[in-house]
């Protein structure tokens, strides 16, 4: 099958429809597929197997398992294409509508700013780093992408480490420092070796890495050199 996506105009229409209270109710009632304008669906250039079933993996503790399945399914997708919200908007509303609804509709119900939650979790807008890790399905692919390391027996070994603590995601995936791949892997490996750490430690690691990056070009150091420099911060 060719993975499908939504046109810009289709997405724009769906965003405008959020002004209607009935549309918001559809998100709260987990009724997403009906919101997709059929005439705006297109076939992408990406051929893939049948999509994995992640419907039962909607609890936060299931994120690593769901991420492994989504990234594995679209492993050949490249970052430039995976940064395109047209793909994820369709997958969130249609292909994986059941998962998206179970995972995020409660957040819409509870929020005072329902539109914002919907735009954040079911769409992918703008150019920021954060948006990659917020969309219901896109975030699962991006978590897998940043952790994927095919030099390991299990290329996804560091995925549960990344998702074990919100502070790790905040420190590495919502700041540019995390774009330095050797640094990201160095931090995850250190956390892994220690069997987990507290949020305060990660915050301090983030500060130290930022400080180091002001004086040296971190990208010039290997993962092991970075681990050696950061190890004392973990103690």
């Amino acid at each position: 099958m060719f993975v499908e996506f939504l046109t810009y105009s289709g997405i724009s229409g769906m965003e405008k429809a959020l002004a209607d209270v009935d549309t918001i109710k559809s998100y709260e009632a987990e009724n997403l597929k009906a919101l997709v304008p059929k005439e705006s669906v297109r076939s992408s250039r990406f051929e893939a197997n049948e999509p994995p079933n992640i419907s039962g993996l909607f609890r936060p503790s299931d994120d690593a398992a769901a991420s492994r399945l989504i990234h594995g399914w679209l492993r050949r997708l490249k970052p430039s294409s995976a940064a395109d919200g047209r793909l994820w908007t369709y997958l969130s509303h249609h292909t994986f509508s059941e998962y998206s609804a179970k995972r995020w509709s409660a957040g819409v119900v509870e929020s005072a700013n329902k539109q914002k939650v919907i735009l954040t979790r079911f769409f992918m807008r703008g150019d920021s780093i954060e948006r990659l890790f917020r969309n219901s399905i896109g975030r699962l692919w991006w978590f897998g992408h940043v952790c994927f390391d095919d030099t390991r027996p299990d290329p996804y070994e560091l995925l549960p480490v990344l998702l074990s603590l919100q502070d790790i995601q905040s420190a590495l995936l919502e700041r540019r420092i995390g774009m330095c791949r050797p640094l990201l892997l160095a931090v995850l490996e250190l956390v892994h070796e220690l069997g987990g750490v507290k949020g305060d430690v990660i915050k301090e690691v983030g500060r130290s890495a930022n400080f180091m990056g002001g004086g040296i070009v971190l990208d010039r150091l290997s993962k092991d050199e970075l681990k050696n420099r950061l190890r004392p911060v973990f103690k």
């Binding site: 970052p79 430039s80 995976a82 940064a83 150019d127 920021s128 780093i129 990659l132 991006w142 992408h145 940043v146 540019r176 995390g178 774009m179 330095c180 791949r181 070009v217 990208d219 010039r220």
Partner: peptide, 9 residues
């Protein structure tokens, strides 16, 4: 390139 979470030298 923040849009694609890419950085290089």
């Amino acid at each position: 390139c923040p849009r694609t979470f890419f950085r290089t030298t």
